[in-house]
Amino acid sequence: MKKLVLAIITLALFQFCQAPQTTDSTSSHGEDGWLTGTNEEKFDEIAHQLGGFSKTMVEVSYRYSELYWAGMDENWGYAEHQIEHIIEAMEDGLKRRPVRAESAETFMEEAIPAIEEIIEQKDKEAFIIGFRAFTSACNACHAKEGESYIVIQEPLQRLSPVRF
């Protein structure tokens, strides 16, 4: 998903740089010319396609579930992989929506390092306890944003075929 987004951005920027630099360029770009309008309108559309924080939360939700199952399987390498991608997704989302940074600060500076330390221990029982604290941190962040109706819980079913 991240590679697709980066490819779209790279293609758009490349095409922008190759286009005559007028403020009123209205040529079409992209497969079948889906990216139309002035350069400003095109950049607005690219920003819209990247989305705000809701798209970040879709990726974080997936990674959160995979992190849980990695811990349950004691697949510590996969757990580390998921945390890396949670961090990347959050950082990218916070670039797009810096207004969320204050609410996410405790999560990013405390909850993530805490779960990283627990993963390094490679102890399933410690992971279960730590994951519950991690989940609480997710919900605390949602509450700070006035979205306490978004309640995160440990996953009940695997959605991914990844097994260890």
Rank of each mutant, 00 (worst) to 15 (best):
V5W: 00
V5Q: 06
L6M: 10
T10M: 10
T10P: 00
A19H: 06
D24F: 09
S25R: 08
S28P: 00
D32Q: 14
T38N: 02
T38C: 01
E41R: 01
I46V: 15
L50K: 06
L50A: 10
G52F: 02
S54H: 09
T56G: 03
M57H: 00
R63L: 09
Y64C: 02
Y64L: 03
M72Y: 04
W76G: 01
Y78F: 13
I83V: 15
I83N: 01
I83C: 00
H85Y: 12
I87D: 06
M90F: 14
G93T: 07
L94E: 03
L94H: 07
R96G: 02
R97G: 03
R97A: 11
V99N: 14
E102G: 07
E109K: 13
I115C: 06
I118V: 15
E120P: 00
K122H: 13
K124L: 11
I129K: 09
G130P: 03
F131I: 07
F134Y: 15
S136Y: 07
A137Y: 05
A137S: 15
N139Q: 08
C141H: 07
H142V: 10
A143T: 14
G146H: 02
E147H: 15
Y149M: 06
Y149V: 08
I152G: 00
E154M: 12
S160Q: 12
P161N: 14
R163Y: 09
F164W: 12
